[in-house]
Design a protein around this nucleic acid. Structure first.
Lengths: 142, 142
DNA sequence: CTGTGTGCAAAGCTTTTGCACTACT
DNA sequence: AGTAGTGCAAAAGCTTTGCACACAG
């Protein structure tokens, strides 16, 4: 298993400290929801999960915290749907199937892809990452 | 040159008819803005372009028309920025650099990539397309 | 007590919806 | 006249901003 998800509260806090994120109560709640298992959650879904347990974390805090986590390298932002961003706790290199019929997002092991010749980058820039999304649809549908 | 962009009004109308899009005045205006040259425009930018020439096309019509064009295969939606969709008049298979510092979007010739082994699709689905985005940033920046 | 960092209500943008209107049959 | 398709004002939804509050030094 490439990714070890922190399961206990203590492990979550340790990971946050490693990544330079101050572990406050709201952030711990949000991180625990994300790292519960491999999954792809929208900000809205994260908020539902968090607020069904403890009292309340505001929408703004959920958004700001997810953005912070992404910048700090705790989670990955997956941009496939114009209407919302998904957050992916799996940080190892991998790509995604995106089912345009169901909105479902599925991890694809990296290694299926070969960048035969990495295209020359524009002058004065460096690569930050490569995102591959394979859009799929249900066969029955047309 | 792989893509021939319709340059005259007549050519734009012909292309729309080919693709099964009823060529109304608003749609022609929008199509002409898009096909003026290879570029990546947001809905907002399209509206500015269209409305600086003729009187006025509403925001809603711009959005609805761009969505229609994308479904009909006149333009391609490029989803790289959570905040907005870009529309790309180049329909030949290609990928994109996305400069996260400047928001700039640059075409990359396809062919740099090799799908060594296409990953097995989930049961009951078929591939619709593959999007590859190489995120880059300015070297100076950190 | 001061300064940095955090959380959230309210504001801002992009996009979608529902309905009036148009243009064919 | 009836019907299918078009355009837009208003509504909705996702995300960011600006400020009040909390906490460490």
């Amino acid at each position: 298993m490439v990714n070890e998800y922190p399961s206990s509260r203590a492990e979550v806090i340790e990971l946050m400290r490693d990544k330079g994120v101050n572990p406050t109560q709201q952030r711990i709640d949000i991180a625990q929801a994300l790292f519960a298992k491999p999954q792809h959650l929208s900000a809205d879904q994260v908020m539902s999960l968090v607020n069904q347990q403890r009292a309340a974390v505001s929408k703004a805090t959920v958004y700001n915290t997810l953005g912070l986590f992404a910048r700090k390298g705790l989670v990955r932002e997956v941009i496939v749907d114009p209407s919302k961003v998904f957050y992916d706790p799996t940080m190892s290199p991998h790509h995604h199937f995106y089912n345009i019929d169901t909105g479902e997002l599925i991890d694809v092991e990296s290694g299926h892809f070969e960048l035969s010749q990495f295209p020359p980058l524009p002058e004065g820039t460096e690569a930050e990452g490569v995102d591959v999304v394979i859009r799929i649809r249900n066969s029955a549908t047309h």
